[in-house]
């Protein structure tokens, strides 16, 4: 009995339908781009794409745990900005290495705190996540704008942040390694831990999870904390990559972060989805933007292509679901 449910929830192949669809779309984009610009296939170019996609990848890793619960985290933009701003402010207060590097910890602490507030509002105060996280996002925005004006006071990243953002180890960009580490953690958590199993249970039916004495509230709070950590981490890496923290740095990551998860086949109702799809979705979105840039498409066309790809692919998944 239990064997059956385990096989169902945990497919043997790491590549499921939506992931495969994403990979096919990625290959199609590579062919389209490569036909016009041969340098498209060069390892340097591909590594560069993965490097710019890593910020989105880390954000969507956090977004996925929340979406698997049937919730959503709209506080991503200002959690990223808050993590980066606080981290660079600590760096600015004293450039001594052993003090400035605590900025990273401070940034992560900010992310975890925001996640905790989000989780408490959703799990214990029972407020719809879409509204609660929208409100916390506005409050963080308010606090940051009030204390630092429309520009960050000290915006220089620390040595370690710069190393993460721009450095390379054994030929690979460090930020790509960071994304890989986050991904391995998420994969391990979702597939090999009780907490990961509980995420799927709570996402499928919170009432049932509660009645079977699963720690439903704890699972929700923990997932929001994880999402907050991911956002803050991505924000600090972005500050290291860009050489500074700045207001609104997180804005371009909110909707694409959700889109990557959904393109990867995770249902917004919760309870269903594979992490491999999220990774593929993040790569697809990054590559789509890059192909259109290289073809010198105007911003308007990028937005339209982005919308059409989401509708076509997600529409395809839902049609497939209805048939089966």
């Amino acid at each position: 009995m239990s064997d059956v449910s385990v096989t169902k929830a945990r497919p043997k192949l790491p590549v499921d339908g939506p992931t495969l669809a994403n990979i096919l779309a990625i290959l199609a984009l590579l062919v389209i781009g490569g036909l016009q610009y041969p340098q498209f296939f060069s390892p340097t170019y591909l590594a560069q794409q993965l490097q710019t996609g890593a910020f989105l990848g880390i954000v969507s890793a956090g977004a996925m745990l929340v979406i698997l619960l049937g919730h959503i985290d709209l506080s991503v933009p200002w959690t990223m900005t808050a993590g980066a701003t606080v981290a660079t402010a600590v760096v600015g207060s004293d450039p001594q290495p052993w003090i400035s590097e605590t900025g990273l910890l401070a940034g992560l602490l900010v992310g975890a705190t925001i996640g905790l507030v989000n989780g408490i509002g959703v799990a214990i105060l029972r407020i719809p996540s879409m509204i609660w996280t929208l409100a916390t996002n506005n409050v963080i925005l308010g606090v940051l704008v009030y204390f630092s004006g429309y520009y960050a006071r000290a915006s220089q990243p620390s040595t370690l942040m710069t190393w993460f953002g721009t450095g390379r180890t054994a030929g690979l960009p460090n930020i790509l390694i960071a994304w890989a580490v986050v991904s391995l953690v998420v994969l391990f958590v979702l597939r090999r831990t009780t907490y990961g199993r509980n995420i799927y249970m709570v996402g499928t039916s919170e009432v049932t999870a509660y009645l079977t004495r699963l720690p439903a509230r704890g699972v929700i709070v923990a997932s929001f904390v994880f999402a907050g950590l991911c956002s803050a981490f991505a924000g600090m890496l972005l500050a290291g990559y860009a050489g500074q923290s700045y207001q609104r740095m997180g804005d371009p990551y909110l909707l694409p972060g959700i889109a990557a998860v959904v393109l990867g086949g995770t249902s917004l109702f919760g309870g269903r989805g594979n992490y491999s799809g999220t990774v593929a979705g993040a790569i697809l979105i990054t590559l789509l933007a890059s192909v259109l840039s290289i073809m010198q498409a105007p911003e308007a066309l990028k937005q339209i292509a982005y919308g059409v790809v989401i509708i076509v692919m997600v529409g395809f998944y839902s049609l497939r679901d209805t048939r089966s």
Binding site: I258, A259, S267, L268, E299, K302, V308, I310, I311, T322
Partner: peptide, 19 residues
């Protein structure tokens, strides 16, 4: 299209912004 409202209007919103 049987898309969830959040994702459907997110996508069409991108299209309308582009237009």
């Amino acid at each position: 299209g049987r898309l969830q409202a959040i994702i459907a209007t997110l996508a069409t919103g991108a299209i309308f912004s582009g237009l």
